[in-house]
Structures are given as structure tokens and as C-alpha cells.
Measured scan of single mutants.
Amino acid sequence: GALPANLDDMKVAELKQELKLRSLPVSGTKTELIERLRAYQDQ
């Protein structure tokens, strides 16, 4: 599914939920979580 547009405004817990939905690792800082989601979306 498409990512929420406001990733930077989301809480870390919400970002981790998005990562879990995509079976991605949820470790790292908020910035790393956002980068991981964006990289996944670009595939």
C-alpha cells in the first residue's frame, strides 16, 4: 500500500506499525525508520 504522506509527523510507534505491515525491521531511530519505509516504497 501507499505510504502516509506525513511520515515525519508520525509517532515512532506508528512508523513501526507501518514497518511491521511490510515485514520490515523496526529497529533504529525515527529517521532510519522513515528512510527504510521510503526505500521500500521506491522498489
Score class of each variant (00 low, 15 high):
Asp8Gly: 14
Lys11Gln: 07
Thr29Glu: 11
Asp8Glu: 15
Ala5Leu: 11
Lys16Thr: 10
Gly1Ile: 15
Gly28Arg: 00
Tyr40Gly: 14
Ala5Thr: 14
Leu19Asp: 01
Lys20Arg: 11
Leu19Phe: 01
Lys30Pro: 05
Thr29Lys: 09
Gly28Leu: 00
Val26Glu: 13
Gln41Val: 12
Glu32Asn: 04
Ser23Trp: 05
Gln41Met: 12
Thr29Leu: 03
Val12Arg: 07
Arg22Ala: 09
Ala5His: 13
Ser23Arg: 10
Thr29Ser: 09
Val26Phe: 10
Arg22Pro: 02
Gln43Leu: 02
Pro25Asp: 06
Thr31Cys: 14
Gln17Ser: 10
Gly28Trp: 00
Glu32Val: 09
Asp42Ile: 02
Gln17His: 00
Arg36Ser: 05
Ser23Pro: 00
Ser23His: 13
Glu18Phe: 06
Val12Trp: 04
Val26His: 05
Glu32Ile: 07
Leu19Gly: 02
Leu7Gly: 04
Pro4His: 12
Tyr40Arg: 11
Leu24Glu: 02
Glu35Ala: 14
Gly28Ser: 00
Val12Met: 14
Lys16Glu: 09
Leu33Thr: 05
Asp9His: 12
Asp42Glu: 13
Gln17Pro: 01
Ala39Tyr: 13
Met10Thr: 02
Asp42Arg: 06
Ala39Phe: 08
Asn6Gln: 06
Lys20Thr: 08
Glu14Asn: 07
Leu19Val: 05
Pro4Gln: 15
Gly28Met: 00
Leu3Asp: 15
Arg38Trp: 06
Arg22Val: 05
Leu37Cys: 03
Glu14Leu: 04
Ser23Glu: 12
Leu15Val: 09
Arg36Trp: 01
Lys20Val: 10
Glu32Ala: 09
Asp8Ala: 14
Lys20Glu: 13
Lys30His: 06
Pro25Lys: 08
Lys11Leu: 06
Asp8Ser: 08
Gln41Phe: 14
Leu19His: 00
Glu32Arg: 04
Leu21Ser: 09
Leu19Tyr: 00
Leu24Gln: 09
Val12Cys: 06
Asp9Arg: 13
Tyr40Asn: 13
Ile34Arg: 08
Asp9Gln: 12
Met10Cys: 03
Ile34Leu: 08
Gly1Val: 03
Lys16Gly: 02
Lys11Cys: 08
Lys30Val: 02
Arg22His: 06
Lys30Arg: 11
Lys30Ser: 06
Gly28Asp: 01
Leu21Gly: 09
Leu7Ser: 02
Gln41Cys: 12
Ile34Trp: 04
Ser27Pro: 09
Glu14Arg: 07
Ala2Ile: 15
Lys20Pro: 03
Met10Asn: 03
Pro4Asn: 06
Leu21Val: 11
Val26Asn: 02
Gln41Pro: 12
Ile34Val: 06
Leu15Ala: 04
Leu7Val: 06
Gly1Cys: 01
Gln17Thr: 08
Pro4Ser: 14
Thr29Gln: 13
Val12Ser: 04
Asp9Leu: 10
Asn6His: 01
Ala5Trp: 01
Glu35Asp: 12
Thr29Asp: 07
Arg22Asp: 04
Leu19Pro: 01
Lys11Arg: 09
Asn6Ile: 09
Thr29Cys: 06
Pro4Val: 15
Lys16Asp: 01
Thr31Lys: 08
Ser27Cys: 06
Gln41Glu: 15
Glu14Ser: 09
Met10Gln: 03
Lys11Ala: 13
Leu3Met: 10
Leu33Lys: 04
Arg36Phe: 00
Arg36Glu: 02
Gln41Asn: 14
Gln41Ala: 14
Leu33Arg: 01
Thr31Phe: 05
Val26Thr: 13
Lys16Ser: 11
Leu15Lys: 02
Leu21Arg: 12
Ala2Gly: 11
Glu35Val: 07
Ala39Ser: 14
Lys20Asn: 08
Leu7Phe: 14
Thr31Ala: 12
Ala5Lys: 12
Leu37Asp: 05
Ala2Met: 15
Val12Tyr: 02
Tyr40Trp: 13
Ala2Glu: 13
Leu21His: 11
Pro4Thr: 14
Glu35Leu: 11
Lys16Val: 08
Ile34Pro: 07
Lys11Met: 05
Arg36Val: 04
Ala2Arg: 11
Arg22Met: 06
Glu18Trp: 01
Met10Asp: 00
Leu21Asn: 09
Asn6Ala: 06
Ala5Met: 15
Met10Pro: 02
Asn6Pro: 00
Gln43Glu: 15
Val26Arg: 08
Leu3Thr: 01
Leu3Ala: 03
Leu33Val: 05
Leu37Lys: 03
Tyr40Leu: 09
Arg36Met: 03
Gln17Val: 06
Asp9Val: 13
Thr29Tyr: 03
Lys30Gly: 02
Lys30Thr: 09
Gln43Trp: 14
Ala5Ser: 08
Lys11Thr: 07
Leu37Arg: 03
Gly1Asp: 02
Pro4Cys: 14
Asp8Leu: 15
Lys16Pro: 02
Ala2Cys: 09
Glu32Leu: 02
Ala39Gln: 14
Asp9Ser: 13
Gly1Asn: 06
Leu19Arg: 00
Ala39Pro: 13
Pro25Glu: 09
Ser27Trp: 08
Arg22Gly: 02
Leu37Asn: 04
Leu3Pro: 00
Leu3Ile: 13
Lys30Glu: 05
Leu3Arg: 10
Glu32Trp: 00
Glu35Cys: 12
Val26Met: 10
Arg22Trp: 02
Glu14Ile: 01
Pro4Lys: 13
Val12Gln: 02
Leu21Gln: 12
Leu24Ile: 03
Ala39Glu: 15
Leu24Cys: 03
Gln17Phe: 06
Thr31Val: 10
Lys20Phe: 07
Lys20Gln: 10
Lys30Gln: 09
Ala39Cys: 15
Lys30Phe: 03
Glu18Thr: 02
Ala5Phe: 10
Lys11His: 07
Lys20His: 04
Ala39Lys: 15
Leu33Cys: 09
Ala39Gly: 14
Leu24Thr: 04
Pro25Leu: 02
Val12Asp: 04
Arg36Gly: 07
Thr29Arg: 06
Glu35Lys: 11
Ile34Thr: 07
Thr31Pro: 09
Gln41His: 08
Leu24Gly: 02
Val26Ser: 10
Gly28Lys: 00
Thr31Gln: 08
Glu35His: 05
Val26Cys: 06
Thr29Trp: 01
Arg36Cys: 08
Leu3Gln: 04
Arg36Ile: 01
Ser23Asn: 11
Ser27Met: 05
Ile34Met: 08
Lys11Phe: 02
Met10Ala: 08
Lys20Met: 11
Leu15Asn: 01
Leu3Gly: 11
Glu18Ser: 05
Met10Gly: 00
Leu7Thr: 08
Leu33Gly: 06
Gln43Thr: 13
Glu18Lys: 04
Ala2Lys: 15
Lys20Cys: 15
Ser23Met: 07
Leu21Glu: 12
Pro4Gly: 14
Gly1Gln: 04
Leu21Cys: 06
Gln41Trp: 12
Arg38Phe: 01
Pro25Thr: 04
Lys20Leu: 11
Glu32Gln: 10
Gln17Lys: 05
Leu15Phe: 02
Ala2Gln: 15
Arg36Gln: 06
Ala5Gln: 10
Glu14Met: 11
Pro4Met: 14
Glu32Phe: 11
Thr31Leu: 08
Leu3Glu: 10
Arg36Ala: 08
Arg22Leu: 06
Pro25Phe: 00
Glu32Gly: 01
Arg22Thr: 05
Gly1Ala: 00
Leu19Glu: 02
Lys16Met: 13
Lys30Ala: 03
Met10Tyr: 09
Leu19Met: 13
Arg22Glu: 07
Gln43Val: 15
Ala2Ser: 14
Ser27Gly: 10
Lys20Ser: 12
Tyr40Thr: 12
Asn6Lys: 13
Glu35Tyr: 13
Arg36Leu: 03
Pro25Met: 03
Thr29Ile: 04
Arg22Ser: 02
Asp9Trp: 08
Lys16Trp: 01
Lys20Gly: 10
Gln17Leu: 04
Glu35Phe: 05
Val12Ile: 07
Tyr40Asp: 15
Asp8Thr: 08
Gln41Ser: 12
Thr29Gly: 08
Tyr40His: 14
Ala5Asn: 14
Asp42Cys: 11
Arg22Tyr: 03
Asn6Leu: 08
Asn6Ser: 07
Asp9Met: 11
Thr31Ser: 09
Gly28His: 00
Leu15Ser: 01
Gln17Trp: 02
Met10Ile: 05
Ile34Glu: 07
Asn6Met: 13
Lys11Gly: 09
Gln41Asp: 15
Val26Leu: 14
Leu33Met: 12
Tyr40Lys: 08
Val26Lys: 06
Leu3Tyr: 15
Ser27Lys: 06
Gln17Ala: 11
Val26Tyr: 10
Gln43His: 10
Arg36Lys: 06
Glu18Ala: 10
